[in-house]
Simulated scan of single mutants.
Amino acid sequence: MAKKSRTKNRDAAPLAEGEVGPRQPCPCGSGKRYKACHGAPGGAGTAYVSRPFEGLPSEPDLVALRELVPAATAPLTLKNGDRKVLLASLLPMAAPAMVRDSGEVWLGLQVQHAFGDPSRDLAAVLTAALEQAERGESGIVGLTSDPGPGPRLQDLVEGGELDITVHEGFEYWVADVEDQTGMEAALEQANGSVHPTAKLTSVPAAYWTNVGTKEHLRWVMPEPENDLLDALSRLHAAGADVLVPESRLVGMFRAHGLLCPVWDLPVGTGPEALEEPAEKFATALAEALADTSDLTPEQRSARSGLANRQVTIR
């Protein structure tokens, strides 16, 4: 019997940047291979949306709060109605939403379900929570199956910049609870998983964090991936991507259609020391983005290195 060819896939077309291969994990987070989930004929319920928060001014921050920031909140303004809505990175038990005793609605970003379009999922949960609040009922609001066609978050909330508060822990979970008896142990356990995190004020969607042995800056950027990689390559080849002494651009995440460059920082750097360098880097990046000339061999080499140090989260 003839042996199976080991070269039958050698001539397959290479994947474009950002494209998901059929045997790779589906970006929706289901844990299945792409070909068995949203890459299957007919998809998996709601069509997979690679950039679900596109069009919202705070798109990079939404990606950061969903994927990188442990404890943060921001008020949302509804297009219709005046009910108070609080967006949170994480709610107790990773709940999709909660209606508090006060009638305020809390909407969680870090959840267990994944139905292809996080913006559609958030809108479905928010709609259900608002309806529950109108009935005067408090408690958790879940999403156990694909919600199907319907509005997206962009359709329900005003599109202004989010006013984000990064918290040291999850005390905001119980800030409106008078009797907190019996909650201390659960809160202490949740807080134990939180790495110190701060949002820079000089540039958008850049978050410093201290993981103990290292500090990092993770900066979610909205520019098209190819353009951003070219610009970062120009700066990297010129040695112009060093924010503070001994810092290093080590790679980047890709999440919900956006790239998030990551810098390693010396322990003890802190967020305050990054404000001015980050602002200067943003100016240099804008100039590099405006440069449409061909990359030099050194810049192409830098680009290849950066592209190989990408990790897709979602």
Rank of each mutant, 00 (worst) to 15 (best):
V69I: 06
S89D: 08
L122Q: 05
G81D: 08
G139T: 01
P118N: 04
A95N: 10
P92R: 08
P70V: 00
E137R: 15
L122N: 04
M98G: 00
P75C: 05
M93L: 11
L87N: 05
A88L: 04
L126G: 07
S102H: 12
L91W: 03
W106D: 11
D101C: 00
R120M: 01
R135K: 14
N80A: 15
V111M: 13
R66T: 10
E134W: 02
L122D: 04
S89A: 15
T77S: 14
W106L: 09
V85T: 04
A124C: 07
A88Q: 12
R83K: 13
L126I: 00
L122V: 02
L65C: 11
A123T: 09
M98V: 13
H113E: 14
L122C: 01
F115E: 09
D121I: 02
L126M: 11
T77Y: 08
A71R: 09
P75R: 04
Q110D: 12
H113A: 13
G81L: 01
K84V: 10
T73W: 07
E104F: 01
E104H: 03
L126K: 05
L86N: 06
P92Q: 10
A94V: 08
L86F: 00
A97R: 07
L90A: 13
P92V: 02
A88H: 08
S89Y: 06
E137Q: 15
L86H: 07
A74T: 02
L86E: 14
A129W: 01
A114K: 09
V105A: 13
S119R: 08
D117N: 13
D101T: 07
E67F: 09
P70A: 06
A95S: 15
A133Y: 08
G108E: 12
L87D: 07
A94L: 13
A129F: 03
K84R: 15
P75G: 06
E67S: 12
V85H: 09
P70I: 03
H113C: 12
G81K: 03
